[in-house]
């Protein structure tokens, strides 16, 4: 369990690309770098805190409207540029606090901004770009839906500083009328409730859990190891369907998402049955 620090995005962006200057013209909260990865030239994107940001509720690592539309722009740029050639990999480095909780954001429709970014990532995946989300820190709720969750493959660090969830602990406890302690206790037996990345891995959504000893100050060997894993994930994505079915066909999902699998089978069977009638 760890608080959001907002440093891992920058650390891993620099580590994986060997560069520190992002593409210009964007808000300082969205860093985009193009860099070689294996035989490819990949586009890396991450959202980081920006205390000087224009919108007060999106200065601490939240994904706000500017962040979402900037991500959408940078992803669409790649789709457009590669329309007639080999599709470049897109790597979303994920360490996001949350979506921006603000009145300005609601007034101007942050939901559409989130949809626009997810549209861009999803469209890239459908166009044949291997889209990889590397979860190095926090991946919460609407922020993760906006940045990362449309990827072909999800990779996460096996580390206490990594947390994927629908809602922060205190708020989830309040809304479900539990104490934080009882919520933590429940998470030990009910995997989808857990804030622990190893429990998340049991849901079968992850392509791989990566062990990294120093996630905030990685060694050259660790960086190379993660690069190799990214290259393998890209290769796997290129040789698989562009949909998200791998998330329900993993061995973990076969166990943990039995209800999903049964529901889909039943719908498929009944759908086929009435098609004959109609």
């Amino acid at each position: 369990m760890s608080e959001y620090k907002g440093i891992r995005g920058t650390v891993w962006l620099k580590a994986l690309t060997g560069q520190s200057a992002p593409l210009g013209g964007d808000p300082a909260s969205v860093l985009t770098i193009d860099a070689p990865l294996g035989e490819d030239n990949a586009r890396f994107l991450c959202v980081v805190p920006n205390p000087e940001g224009r919108f007060p509720c999106a200065r601490h690592g939240e994904v706000g409207m500017e962040e979402a539309y900037t991500l959408a722009t940078r992803v669409r740029e790649v789709i457009h540029e590669d329309r007639d050639r080999l599709k470049r990999p897109i790597v979303a480095i994920v360490d996001v606090k949350s979506q921006a909780y603000g009145r300005r954001e609601e007034t101007a429709g942050i939901f559409l901004a989130g949809a626009a970014a997810a549209d861009a990532y999803g469209s890239a995946r459908l166009a044949g770009h291997p889209v990889i989300a590397l979860i190095v820190g926090h991946a919460f709720s609407g922020a993760f839906l906006t940045h990362g969750y449309q990827a072909n493959r999800l990779l996460a660090f096996d580390d206490d500083g990594v947390m994927i969830h629908a809602m922060h602990k205190a708020a989830a406890a309040r809304i479900t009328r539990r104490t934080v302690e009882s919520l933590e206790e429940l998470g030990k037996t009910i995997a989808p409730l857990s804030y622990n990345i190893r429990d998340y891995a049991k849901l079968g959504l992850l392509y791989k859990l990566l062990h990294v000893e120093h996630p905030e100050n990685p060694s050259p060997a660790e960086i190379e190891g993660v690069q190799k894993e990214l290259i393998a994930a890209i290769h796997d994505a290129r040789n698989s369907p562009v949909d998200l079915r791998s998330r329900t066909t993993s061995s973990e999902a076969l166990d943990m998402r039995k209800a999903s699998i049964q529901t889909r089978r039943l719908l498929e069977a009944q759908w086929a049955e009435i098609r004959h009638e109609q």
Binding site: F144, Y149, A166, T176, P192, L193, L203
Partner: peptide, 11 residues
């Protein structure tokens, strides 16, 4: 998201 199913709801 249904908070009793948290990460499966989000997924």
């Amino acid at each position: 998201v249904r908070l009793q199913e948290a990460n499966l709801g989000l997924a």
